[in-house]
Design a binder for these strands. Structure first.
Length: 572
DNA sequence: GCCGTTTTCGGCCCGACTGTTTTCAGTCG
């Protein structure tokens, strides 16, 4: 079995938890956590870097020791150090850490005093009210553990961005209406436009004691008030989502927004810069000694550490701070840059609108062009088209184009990549099209080697233009199929093929790290909605957000181009 | 365990809230 970055990250993160329960040096623990994150977010496979004898200790947060441990994991599949730790600390204990409110100290106490190792044993001890007897525990702790235990068995996955969007809007309206509230903004991973959101962080500016905290905890969707203070409160909504509300006053707004937007790693990196300049940054501002010298806007905060404004989508400590320092931050693509949509279906296959309705909806969005890309016959459930049906459909598009004003329909197809790497329609038909999107819709279970070969072989066809939803994942529903994406992107670069960023909020495929890799290798991206209705053309914003997280600029995107330039690019 | 335009040793981001406490540890973000 090949070792993936996520395997290595998982091992390091287990080591960190184990050391934490052991009561080890917190900075050593943090080193393992940082390494787990660094490896986990890398866009290239570490095992491949080792094959090429690259020096892993060049990676930030990876030194000689951890580089050696990574090599050990890649070569042997496991880590001796972790196996040793597991003889000292029962690995089941790590499950207990998932309970909010139980940290390493309390978990250790539960194990030491009551011999509790598993969630089941914890449940029993709760029933017998043994927990409240322990030093440092009490009735409330016991009740909280009990609540949490119930909650995680229903284990809520992280929210898709689109769902977070739906939940947060009415809450913002509600808070906005409270008297004395000057400004409300969502921060956190929502503002960074992460594809999924763990909880919602909302920031308000209020006049002194305007009572917004009280109003917040009485919102009709609140199931439980986790904590309530004068500057911060936390609630659980009925949907299971946790929402944090923080109140600051106006002079601290920028500092607070920066702080609560995160990411944590980004904040730490920025604060380190501040320390070097003898400054201190917290959510109230930037301070020299006790004096606040900035904090009203985010720009002010960045300025104090010698940086230009960094867009929230980039704030992951993935090189944005160095890029900002060297004045090479990307100017990220925006929704306004988008001139058309390159992936849409109509009622002919599994869409819900007809050609004309789709064309008019696209024109209303101010687009210059819309590509109609029906499924090919292999996707029988979607009534995919065979060669003759597609040719007739192309005639329909031609006829409609003659009548249309202000928008051009492009003739495309979403043709299946079959198991042997061939395309599901003959070349003589593909040659009639403006371009193709080629997608995998079957045999997701192939080995990484076979899946990768399948896709790259398909790219050898001269009519292959864009690889549709390249990983096949559905967020929270279906894992990506096993494929060596770095190899696929490299192959696309060599053959001058393109990759899709499917903007459907369930897909957002490519992910941000692969987008960055595609950009580095010079592979252009089509940001496309895969719309099956006029309404879903609106998903473009999710695609643009995801693209921004991948450092994508207008020039990296196919559909920021004028039609004439686009046509030239689409010719292979 | 990592890291270095003051350092190869001695630092490592910073604050709010809770619960169990007689002044603060633990946890979280």
């Amino acid at each position: 079995m090949p070792i993936h970055n996520s395997d290595i990250a998982g091992i390091f993160s287990r080591v960190a938890d184990m050391l934490d329960i052991k009561g080890e040096n917190p900075f050593r623990i943090r080193a393992y956590q940082n390494a787990a994150r660094t490896v986990g977010e890398l866009s290239r496979d570490v095992s491949e870097m080792i094959d090429r004898e690259e020096d892993l200790s060049e990676l930030s947060g990876i030194g000689k020791d951890l580089a050696g441990k990574i090599a050990e994991i890649v070569q042997t599949g496991s880590l001796k150090f972790l196996r040793e730790l597991e003889t000292e600390i029962p690995p089941e204990l790590l499950e207990l850490l998932k309970i909010s409110g139980l940290g390493p100290r309390k978990v250790k106490a539960l194990h030491r005093e009551l011999g509790i190792k598993t969630l089941a044993q914890l449940k029993d001890a709760l029933k017998e009210h043994k927990i409240r007897e322990l030093e440092g525990f009490g009735e409330k702790t016991e009740a909280n553990i009990s609540d949490e235990l119930e909650r995680i068995t229903g284990s809520e996955p992280r929210l898709k961005l689109v769902i977070a969007d739906e939940i947060v809007k009415p809450l913002l309206d509600y808070l906005q209406k409270s008297s004395g509230v000057k400004k409300v903004e969502v921060a956190g991973s929502y503002r960074r436009r992460k594809e999924t959101v763990g909880d919602l962080d909302i920031l308000v500016i209020q006049k002194k004691d305007a009572g917004v905290m009280d109003r917040f905890v009485h919102y009709e969707d609140v199931k439980k008030v986790v904590s309530q203070g004068s500057t911060r409160s936390t609630v659980l909504l009925k949907s299971g989502v946790q929402v944090d509300l923080r109140a600051v006053n106006e002079v601290s707004y920028g500092a607070a927004l920066h702080y609560f937007t995160g990411s944590k790693a980004h904040n730490i990196a920025v604060r380190k810069l501040a320390v070097k300049k003898n400054l201190k940054i917290n959510e109230y501002g930037v301070f020299r000694d006790k004096k606040r010298i900035a904090g009203r806007t985010e720009e002010e905060v960045f300025e104090q550490v010698g940086l230009p404004f960094i867009p929230p989508e980039l704030r992951e400590d993935r090189g944005e701070i160095e890029a900002a320092r060297d004045h090479r931050l990307p100017s990220l693509v925006t929704l306004k840059d988008i001139r058309g949509d390159l992936h849409a279906h109509t009622r002919i296959t599994d869409g819900h609108a007809d050609l004309k309705e789709m064309a008019e909806a696209a024109r209303e969005k101010g687009y210059e062009y819309l590509a109609i890309t029906e499924h090919s016959k292999h996707v029988a459930v979607a009534r995919g088209l065979n060669a003759e049906e597609l040719l007739r459909h192309l005639d329909d598009i031609d006829r409609l184009n003659e009548k249309l004003d202000g928008i051009v329909l492009l003739k495309g197809v979403e043709v299946d990549i079959l198991e042997d790497g061939s395309l599901d329609l003959p070349d003589r038909v593909l040659s009639e099209l403006d371009f193709t999107i080629c997608s995998v819709h079957s045999r997701f279970g192939l080995s990484s080697k076979k899946q990768t070969e399948r896709i790259i072989k398909a790219m050898d066809n001269d009519y292959f233009r864009i690889l549709g939803h390249p990983s096949g994942r559905l967020i929270n529903e279906r894992a990506p199929y096993d494929v060596d994406m770095a190899q696929v992107i490299t192959a696309a670069a060599k053959r001058e093929c393109f990759m899709e960023l499917n903007a459907h909020p369930d897909r957002l495929d490519l992910n941000d790290r692969h987008l960055l890799l595609a950009k580095e290798l010079g592979v252009k991206i089509a940001i496309s909605t895969d719309a099956h209705s006029t309404e879903s053309l609106n998903y473009m914003r999710f695609g643009v957000w995801q693209a921004r997280r991948g450092w994508i600029e207008p020039d990296d995107v196919l559909n920021t181009r004028k039609l004439t330039d686009l046509r030239r690019l689409l010719k292979r």
